[in-house]
Simulated scan of single mutants.
Amino acid sequence: MRVDLFDFELPPERIALRPADPRDSARLLLVGADALDDRIVSELPRLLRRGDTLVFNDTRVIPAQLEGRRGDARIGATLHKREGPRDWRAFVRNAKRVRSGDRIDFGNGVTALAGARSEDGAILLSFEGEEPVELLLERAGRMPLPPYIAARREADARDAEDYQTMFAREKGAVAAPTAALHFTPRLIDALAEAGIGHETLTLHVGAGTFLPVKADDTDEHRMHSEWGRIDAATADRLNAVRAGGGRIVAVGTTSLRLLESAAGEDGLLRAFEGDTAIFITPGYRFRAVGGLLTNFHLPRSTLFMLVSALMGRERMQQAYAHAIENGYRFYSYGDASLLLPEQ
């Protein structure tokens, strides 16, 4: 499909620079097959059905933004994907000043050797020393805010908490699974009282999620890969939910992509561990999920293509036009949409 079919105009003032407070007070656009309804995230227990289960991504964002020097050259690095105990692929600013074998000093005793470049331009960084890389990043790194926020303000102490979900446990993401930012313990308790369960899986979100689609046709786009895991016990419980008539509702496109990667042609979920580069566009047949709670995405992005695959491209263009006209806040710190194709 032509990529320009997924374009739309977004006024810059619609981009949220801070999350809603409290988190579950964010606005929620309910998108069904035939209706749009303006709601609030805290109303979720009344919008879902008893027996449904929400699936969250429990990845934890690491301080993956680094500033350093190679000789007299200033070098910026955003870690992208882990390749080994001490090795990370990184998107590097001023990369033309970096050659394989160069040592980059990120300060506070943190150094890394530059290695080979991949096809997407990322450079392999091998961190030196014996301390775990996670400790090195805590010392020298910063929270990697999305580029559309970082271009308008600096990351600060608030972001260290604001950019983590209440489920954040497994360290390894360089971007938050932002749909889950809307949840609070109070909301989870209310969902449980309404007979709506929840499960977790892990997908370490990479910086590639923010890469623009440069191709003119979706068939020509190469999707970035991310590492994920869902264990057999969780898969079995989710299969039981569907067998009992409940819906699996993914919280975030990262949860959805891993669920669909773990589902077989028969629609059953199985244990999964490894990389996934699944690229979901209109025409895709969903195997596992019956709904999606997600934030509002960038024009011409793979994520807007994904939601268009679930609900239909024209339907999502209508929903986004409604959200823009009615003052919804967009992107990582913005408001949410609940997509239920059956309704």
Rank of each mutant, 00 (worst) to 15 (best):
I40M: 10
D102I: 10
L44W: 01
A116K: 04
N94K: 05
T111C: 12
D37Q: 15
V133K: 06
L48K: 09
L47E: 07
A114C: 08
R39D: 00
D72R: 14
D34M: 04
D38G: 04
I62M: 10
G115P: 02
R86F: 13
L79T: 00
E131L: 08
V61L: 11
R74G: 07
G101T: 02
A90K: 01
E138Q: 14
P63A: 03
V98Y: 09
G121N: 08
L79A: 05
L66V: 01
I62Q: 07
G84D: 08
R99V: 09
A73L: 11
R39F: 02
R97V: 05
N57R: 14
T59C: 13
R97N: 08
T59Y: 12
G32F: 06
A90T: 05
R46M: 00
L44I: 01
N57I: 12
A116H: 04
E131N: 01
L113S: 05
D105A: 02
A64H: 09
V98F: 13
V110Y: 02
E119G: 11
V61T: 11
F127Q: 02
G51Y: 09
K81A: 13
L135Y: 11
L28M: 07
R86G: 06
A26G: 15
E134V: 12
L54R: 01
R89L: 15
E138F: 14
V31Q: 06
A122Y: 00
R103L: 15
E131C: 01
V41I: 13
E138S: 13
A95E: 12
R46S: 04
K96M: 15
L125T: 01
E131Q: 01
R97W: 06
R39E: 03
E131S: 03
I40H: 13
L135V: 07
R27C: 09
E67L: 14
R49Q: 15
L113W: 00
I75G: 10
L125W: 02
R70I: 00
I40W: 05
K96D: 15
V98W: 11
G129N: 03
A73S: 12
E130V: 00
R99I: 14
R60Y: 14
E130I: 04
E67S: 15
S25W: 02
S42N: 10
R74W: 10
I62D: 03
D52F: 09
V110C: 05
L29H: 03
I62L: 13
G121F: 03
R74E: 12
A35N: 05
A122M: 06
L136A: 13
Q65K: 13
S25Y: 03
S126V: 04
E119D: 15
L29P: 00
E83L: 10
A122S: 15
V31M: 01
G76M: 13
